[in-house]
Design a binder for these strands. Structure first.
Lengths: 141, 141
DNA sequence: CGCTATTAGATTGTATACAATCTAATTTGA
DNA sequence: TCAAATTAGATTGTATACAATCTAATAGCG
């Protein structure tokens, strides 16, 4: 067994599958004018609105260098807006606009669409999800 | 169960773990002046030298828009060189340089180092690998 | 043979990622 | 209290990704 052989690498299928999933999201998210990372930001904001950039970054494991331009795109698309926390002016508070709120209902069909293009049964989906959550744990993420 | 909740997404842990793995590779690959995608190209070439860009792209699922600049970096680093197939001048043949060949021996320690920073046992490693290969299959990749 | 279709790479434009650095605001400790 | 340390974001520079388009070379076919 050659550990330098591509087919023996754990990391490559992660890399490849992750790219493949993003690609399949691209088609589904295009009508909403969203990319996959932008969609993730929207998911976070639909869970909790009016949170600082920092909190979004913690949740998605992204830093300001990535989030600043990404949030600006979401502003351009009309889904969010920026404000400053008056108690701590360093803090940039991200708020959903009306369009951002109503997008939530239109986006409700996305998870099912994704499951369909991935072609996984509920059981498979759950099994893979369990494995990934376990691995996240082991990696201290 | 809210399917729009981040914690119920299969795709997010893929995205997050994939980024995390790349980050851990970064430290290990830095002494070799390689990024993770560049390392993948080297793995492919160590398996088979003198193959066209197209073949590397098929293997890594990357197109010329990604590979052209990436290969130019590897040329700058002195690990590969470009040539044209004389029988088909469209084809760009990628060849390892002497430095590229000898890098292979120096890189032999990388897989173990990665396994160490990931903190996985052999069994865990194999189990995850099996699941991912299975999923790749299901996704027709 | 010569024209059309196809193919391989390169290029352009857009969108992440992330390290490193910078600025402004807040916190902390002598 | 007030200078030093810390923190939140923004900015800069480098490196992917990938769709779309372009160019040059080859293949296919009437």
């Amino acid at each position: 067994m050659n550990p330098l052989h591509l087919s023996n690498q754990l990391c490559f299928p992660f890399y490849a599958i992750s790219k493949e999933i993003s690609k399949r999201y691209r088609t589904i998210l295009a009508p909403f004018n969203l990319t996959y990372p932008q969609y993730l930001v929207m998911l976070v904001l639909w869970e909790q609105d009016r949170i600082p950039l920092k909190a979004i970054g913690r949740r998605l494991q992204l830093d300001s260098g990535t989030l600043t331009p990404l949030l600006n795109k979401l502003i351009q698309s009309g889904y969010i807006e920026k404000a400053r926390n008056e108690l701590d002016e360093r803090e940039l508070v991200i708020k959903l606009t009306d369009a951002g709120h109503s997008l939530r209902e239109q986006a409700a069909s996305i998870p099912l669409q994704i499951q369909r293009v991935l072609g996984l049964t509920d059981d498979e989906y759950k099994r893979y999800k369990g494995m990934l959550d376990e691995l996240s744990q082991k990696l201290n993420m």
